[in-house]
Design a protein around this nucleic acid. Sequence first.
DNA 1: ATGGCTGCAAACAGTTTGCATGCCC
DNA 2: GGGCATGCAAACTGTTTGCAGCCAT
Lengths: 132, 132
Amino acid sequence: MSTNRSIRRNSQQRQVILEELQRLKSHPTAADLYEIVRRRLPRISLGTVYRNLELLAEQGTIRRLDAGAVQARFDGKLALHHHIRCQSCGSVDDIELPPLDLSGFIPQNTGGYEVYGHRLEFFGICPQCRKS
Amino acid sequence: MSTNRSIRRNSQQRQVILEELQRLKSHPTAADLYEIVRRRLPRISLGTVYRNLELLAEQGTIRRLDAGAVQARFDGKLALHHHIRCQSCGSVDDIELPPLDLSGFIPQNTGGYEVYGHRLEFFGICPQCRKS
DNA sequence: ATGGCTGCAAACAGTTTGCATGCCC
DNA sequence: GGGCATGCAAACTGTTTGCAGCCAT
């Protein structure tokens, strides 16, 4: 969430990490990517992969999925409702939506998946964090 | 993901955890709930909270948010698209959707949040896991 | 030459698990 | 009384970070 204002250098490592991620059609974890990048840069460290993924996501060059889901959260309310997550502090609240029927949007090509359901989640900045 | 087939007992701890979670309108982490439950059961352990939340979610009594998001995953493709996650192995793939305009579904009551966007994610079982 | 970046390893945070004991059925 | 569940602590997994040296600018 912190913005790095320093001037960026174009390191070998960062370039290769980005190249390999963009080449893939999958959505690798940092460890996956580490193994792949290691074939080209055998001395790279996992820490460097993490640092660069963080940096690239921050500047918008790549996307991090599951953003902000550092800890598991639990909901005692089973009735259908949606959530909004604060990108700054990670808190989660219920959100009111107009009646929303996504059943017409069942995916056409599931890539062989058996689809059980979906989750629609919003993200933004919560009242507390907006103040600062 | 494993299914526990043994007969369930109705422990004090499990009851209190469920009661407190259902009473809350928020979406606490395991640690949050541990602190709350501890006020009624001072000798409860964090491990017990985790075990029971897992168990309650498995039997469908509560919901776990961010299910299966154990590791961060990264995407080199910035163009708008949606994902499907395998509930069994955690893998993530792109999914094809018909044109989907959610702009009409901007939340009415955001609870003071400044809304930046949303994420629509599907979940199911991937081809590999379906075989087993 | 400067200072951002790296490799390495230790530290951290969240979660899981092994074990002896406790307690619900 | 039997065996699921607990408390405790250690182990694990994923991620972050401090540091000394390296390398792009």
